[in-house]
Design a protein around this nucleic acid. Structure first.
Length: 257
DNA sequence: ATGACGCTATATTAGCGA
């Protein structure tokens, strides 16, 4: 059995103690991190290695930044979409862990429907789709894990009415996700839990977590060869509690061998 | 509620997140 988790940590520097204690407590085999907010030059693998993990980091400064932490091997990395001219802010990193291709992704936010960043977001998903096709990744065991900044359906937000006209729930964003499903990928949490709400992000403001005013935007998309192996999918709400939490909780899937 | 909260940068406010 192998577990794969995804966790937007909102600064790995600020969250390092929590991330390390979570790894120690759960011993999750593969963990994809997003928003490390570090450059590769400043990234220190030592504390992960001290716990028996390998780690790869892809970041260039203050914003974004993704990493993969693994105790079951970490090889054949691809940073970004594999070409410097396609790079868009260090938002995707791929490697092989225990025979599974694993991508840690941090999709652009979009900000607002009438903001230029919204088009950047949609374009990034087009690039992702093209890259997945070119690499043929849907035909191998592959998990795309990360903060997609899209809530797949109305079930995945606390109040659909309150979010009309906002990003994360628009038709174009959801269509971008649907195109990944059309390739053959599946939303592992929703496949295992067809009707259960499993929010993974709650705003820091306004007591959103305690009111469970959240969204499910952190997803693990599995290729067919992996979907058939998924036995569990769960959000670790406890990791959103306590002192200095990220505004995201980790989401974990379990795979049979 | 043009709000809240938290993180970062050669900072003492502004940009960004979702």
């Amino acid at each position: 059995m192998v577990r794969i988790a995804t966790w937007n940590v909102n600064s790995l520097r600020a969250r390092l103690p929590r991330v390390l204690s979570w790894l120690e407590a759960t011993r999750t085999e593969v963990v994809c991190l997003q928003e490390t907010k570090q450059s590769d030059l400043n990234f220190d693998p030592t504390p992960f290695e001290a716990l028996g993990y390998q780690v790869l980091h892809h970041g260039d400064g203050q914003w974004n930044g993704v990493a993969i932490v693994s105790s079951v091997g970490l090889s054949d990395p691809i940073a970004g979409f594999g070409r410097a001219d396609l790079e868009a802010g260090c938002r995707i990193l791929t490697a092989t862990c225990g025979g599974i291709r694993v991508s840690s992704v941090y999709a652009p936010n979009g900000r607002a429907l009438d903001d230029p960043h919204y088009e950047v977001k949609l374009h990034w998903f087009e690039q992702l789709e093209t890259w997945l096709r070119d690499e043929g990744l849907v035909d191998v065991p592959h998990a795309i894990c990360g903060d997609f900044n899209i809530a797949p359906s109305e079930l995945d937000v606390y109040d659909p009415q309150a979010l009309v006209g906002m990003t994360h729930v628009s038709d174009k964003e959801r269509a971008a996700l649907e195109r990944l499903f059309s390739l053959g990928y599946r939303d592992a949490y929703r496949t295992i839990n067809p009707e259960q709400q499993g929010f993974s992000w709650w705003d820091y403001r306004g007591g959103a977590f305690h009111q469970n005013h959240g969204m499910r935007i952190d997803l693990l998309l599995t290729s067919p060869l992996l979907t058939s192996r998924v036995t569990e999918a769960a959000v670790d709400r406890a990791a959103r509690k306590g002192e200095k939490p990220s505004d995201h909780a980790p989401v974990t899937i379990s795979l049979i061998d």
